[in-house]
Design a protein around this nucleic acid. Sequence first.
DNA 1: TTAGGGTTAG
Length: 588
Amino acid sequence: MIDSSAFFVVPCHNYHRIVELLLSSARSKSTPKGLQLHGYILKSGLFLIPLVSNNLINFYSKSQLPLDSRRAFEDSPEKSATTWSSIISCFAQNELPSMSLQFLNKMMAGNLRPDHHVLPSATKSCGILSRCDIGRSVHCLSMKTGYDADVFVGSSLVDMYAKCGDIVHARKVFDEMPERNIVTWSGMMYGYTQIGENEEALWLFKQALLENLDVNDFSFSTVLSACANSTLLELGRQIQGLCVKSSFGSSSFVGSSLVSLYSKCGVLEEAHRVFDETPLKNLGIWNAMLKACAQHSDAKEVIEFFKRMKLSGMKPNFITFLNLLNACSHGGLVEEGRYYFDLMKESKIEPTDKHYACLVDTLARAGKLQEALEVIKNMPIDPTESVWGALLTGCTIHKNTELAAFAADKVFELGPVSSGMHISLSNAYAADGRFEDAARARKLLRDRGEKKETGLSWVEERNRVHTFAAGDRRHEKSKEIYEKLVELGEEMEKAGYVADTSFVLREVDGDEKSQTIRYHSERLAIAFGLITFAKDRPIRVMKNLRVCGDCHNAIKYMSVCTGRVIIVRDNNRFHRFEDGKCSCNDYW
DNA sequence: TTAGGGTTAG
């Protein structure tokens, strides 16, 4: 029932007052007030006035009620370009991008030309759908109508191409635009971070500063995530300073990027501080903090944070659960892993292959190989490489060579395999005595001209990054680094360290094996840290691959012999070595 | 006195 008595004070002929009320309901997100207004508008016949019905469409759009918006659109007697623009933008903003494009077609079928308000919305819809093909048509349309010179249209095109991964066209549009603003620049920076060209994104940010553009929370969060991706701690700190100065320090988007930056750089305390100091916490910052705890192997704390998050009224999404499940698998928490997996279904969130991979990983690492296999068999979606890969890893740890080879077969059946996977497959077959298949896996790797990703470790020193590969002698302090490692090696052996050469897969004799292992990239990076940094400063090393078992053991001895804290981040988590122990409890 | 473009967390 709609009660119009509340509007007795509103003179019927003054529809401007109604428009004002609609606008203020949209702004204050007061849906009930808007619904009452709608009743009044219908009763009084005011919906016949285009300005009123257009505003009604916009009110529903801002209230995230696109279907009601559509009804208001249908009721509107005179559909001008503005009316179409309102409804097309409504669908683009309310997760109905396909419908937004359908309405663009309808608009054109009625001989109305899309203008500079419609085109950005339509382009945005193409970006959301990752439909570069349709996006190109909209681009052509913009050029034909001359609206491609408009800064809104151009910026939306840059973003659309970036979202579709077509950085070349994004850049072409960007370069050819007659006028650019901070939105255009942010879109371009975002595009580069999406394809891993973080340095290019940083360079653009610097240009934006030099051109005196008003950088804002959007640009800050993007550039900070570029720093996070490249673990550029010092640069990130400097940019944080700029954020604070320009009063974007309390933005939750900026906060999420900062939490992620500090977490990825191994400075967990700072991540906590940023989290605590961000006044309005959105889902992103909660997820970033959960991920930070998970990366630093604090499964219990992840669970505590999750409880706090629910108490604060924040609803989890699929990323939240991915972090929870990840924490459970790293912490060896089998029961908890199962619990959160079921909780996700209760929360009506469909598990993706990555969620299944986490569950399988948890079970398989704990030695529950048959259960893990059952989970895979009962999956409602097709198991992917990461799911079978998780089973394979567990089988390797628990030396079930037959099941490992079976998992490897399944991976092979899926078709092309990612580069690191060939080695795992080959090893699984070899362990099961299937040498021909092992050779086949290796041959595939060679045929495709792929090499195993080179293992690299790096250390940040002020604004410089020192990178090392295994056996690398290119560094200017190479001589001191190797001397340090030899000296330290002797102390470590006295303390009881024995090199375990089974981690070297190449077929070489024993001596050469221990030589190779002695100079893995992380050891060179640590030695550099030892001879460079003050004694009380932790040595932070980043690595792109997993740390091998022997290095993991060796670094424990290094922490004892030198009395230093050594923090190593591998491709998915942190190891904090202190007094001969590692924070991962040897479970990684 | 209506309508348009960019961000975080995986």
